[in-house]
Design a protein around this nucleic acid. Structure first.
Length: 494
RNA sequence: GGUGGGUUGGCGGAGAGGUUACGCACCGGAUUGCAAAUCCGUGAAGACCGGUUCGAUUCCGGUACCCACCUCCA
């Protein structure tokens, strides 16, 4: 049996992972609030914990792992989006969930077994809140129900803070009805135009944190194996979840192991709308960066380190994958992934180590093992990386004509024209490569994007409404026409 | 102010108290009309200051700098 070790944020140590029940290993990951397209930062935990899911299934058996990831579909950001667009909340959340599935599927992430929506668990949340009030951990005040943090001495333990420190550094104004400034909302009143449900405390809606406590208890039990999420959720979200769940259930822990991934940066800076470096997964896919390449880049960096998204990494990932795809084309994958890859992943999910092991396999020429191992972490799949087989979609009449012209020129040893064609296309990152079986086109996605922007074919980054169709085709066609015009005009001069 | 994380060769990024990480880029060679790809090969490192040790990039202490969180956030 492979031994998995994981860095447990709760104990701040790397520990050997031992499931509570090896026949049913239970994992909960905090999912998205569904009001907009998933941005790249949302994708990191999805991909990282997808690898964890795959590893657990490998070690304990396909049917021995229960993986839950929620959708938060009641939230003030959603209300705001509804108010600003005039659309019904349900329509927005449904649409966003559909987008989320599309985008995460494109990254090769397996769907969890359960994807509960908060609004389907309002009853359980109300029951849990009643329980907390009954046990003296929560109180009602002015239509709100609040958790009384002073009743839970271990509050702050997960994030290593003391209540007094937090109060000293707090920058929020404190609602007057709170007994302690750090008390947080379990239930709050709704106005008629806000989503709400009838409750013992009147018409209202749940606070942010209670949903995860209610849903994880319902689907995984009072105590489960792993709770995962971004490090930014450690406080207050996870701290509050722990307080609610442990006090309601009277348990020593909520989850045995807590995993937190570090944040994502873009070109060395925090991704933010104001810096203009904010983009969604869909933006990248639409620009022609394959989901597999995005996945590879996300896996290049260990999950507990801040990861920087750079153009250079995209280029490197693409070239590596192209190489491996060439090496494994038509090869039947081995029966199981290489032990070195499993060993790397078992060591606190070292995806960078696993990639290094894949490089070893590639260098050794073990294509079957490379393919099996890469597929194990969601790479070199038949569909997820469907990006090298799209050549036919890109080829327009103008491009065909150019390729033909160049072949003719080469046959006539008119290398000046032949090279002018290749260099011209090269301007936009479109490359003609002479292989044994004839010329074919390849593209440098980043240069393609750059050229597309300059030519006005790509406008704006944050595409909420989906991409224009065949953006790549348009760029290919545009540069081809440009080069063709140049070649033909210089030809007629002679 | 509080809490947590980081600092490795041109870039990315690992492990291990003493033996080449690895990848990309670069450089040299083979191959190619030229490229691309491929193959072979050479270089190059561990923020700073102390300590422990026969020996530290790897352990301990301190300093500097960077980042995140403390407010919705993966």
């Amino acid at each position: 049996m492979v031994e998995i070790s994981l860095t447990n944020t709760r104990t701040r140590t790397k520990e050997r992972f031992e499931p509570i029940d090896p026949k049913n290993v239970r994992v909960y990951a905090c999912g998205p609030t569904v009001y907009d397209r998933a941005h790249l930062g949302n994708a990191r935990p999805v991909v990282v914990f997808d690898v964890l899911f795959r590893l657990l299934r490998h070690v304990y058996g396909e049917d021995a792992v229960t993986y839950v990831r929620n959708f938060t579909d009641v939230d003030d950001k959603i209300n705001a989006r509804a108010a600003e667009t005039g659309r019904p909340i349900r329509e927005i959340t449904e649409e966003t969930i559909g987008w989320y599935h599309d985008d995460m599927d494109a990254l090769g992430a397996l769907r969890p077994m359960h994807e509960p929506r908060a609004t389907d668990y309002i009853g359980q949340m109300i029951a849990m809140i009643e329980d907390l009030i009954r046990k003296g951990f929560a109180y009602e005040a002015e239509g709100h129900v609040l958790f009384d943090v002073r009743k839970f001495p271990e509050y702050g333990k997960l994030s290593g803070r003391s209540l007094d420190d937090m109060i000293a550094g707090a920058r929020v104004e404190v609602a007057p009805y709170k007994r302690d400034p750090m008390d947080f909302v379990l239930w709050k009143p709704s106005t008629d135009d806000q989503p709400g449900w009838d409750s013992p405390w009147g018409y209202g809606r749940p606070g942010w944190h209670i949903e995860c406590s209610a849903m994880s208890a319902e689907l995984l039990g009072d105590v489960f194996d792993i709770h995962a999420g971004g490090i930014d959720l450690q406080f207050p979200h996870h701290e509050n979840e722990i307080a609610q769940s442990r006090c309601a259930h009277g348990t020593e822990v909520m989850a045995k192991t807590w995993l937190h991934n570090e944040m994502l940066q873009v070109e060395g800076k925090k991704m933010s709308k104001s810096l203009g470096n904010f983009f969604t997964v869909r933006d990248l896919l639409d620009q022609g960066i394959p989901g597999e390449v995005i996945r590879f880049v996300l896996l290049m960096t260990h999950y507990r380190k801040p990861m920087d998204w750079t153009a250079e990494k995209v280029r490197e990932a693409e070239s590596t994958l192209r190489k491996w795809r060439g090496l494994t084309e038509g090869i039947e994958p081995a029966a199981s992934p290489a032990p070195a890859v499993i060993a790397a992943l078992a060591d606190d999910l070292s995806t960078a180590g696993a990639i290094a092991a894949l490089h070893d396999l590639a260098r050794a020429g073990d294509a079957a093992s490379l393919k099996a191992s890469a597929q194990f972490i969601g790479l070199l799949g038949d569909t997820a990386g469907d990006w090298d087989n799209r050549k036919s979609h890109r080829v327009s009449a103008a491009l065909l004509r150019l390729i033909e012209l160049r072949t003719q020129s080469r046959n006539l040893k008119d290398y000046a024209t032949a090279d002018a064609i290749r260099d011209g296309l090269g301007e936009a990152g479109v490359q003609i490569v002479d292989a044994e079986n004839g010329p074919h086109v390849q593209s440098d996605v980043l240069r393609l994007i750059e050229w597309g922007k300059r030519a006005g074919l790509i406008t704006g980054l944050h595409s909420k409404l989906g991409a224009p169709d065949h953006l790549e085709y348009q760029i290919y066609d545009a540069i081809s026409r440009e080069v063709l015009a140049k070649i033909e005009s210089s030809g007629s001069d002679q």
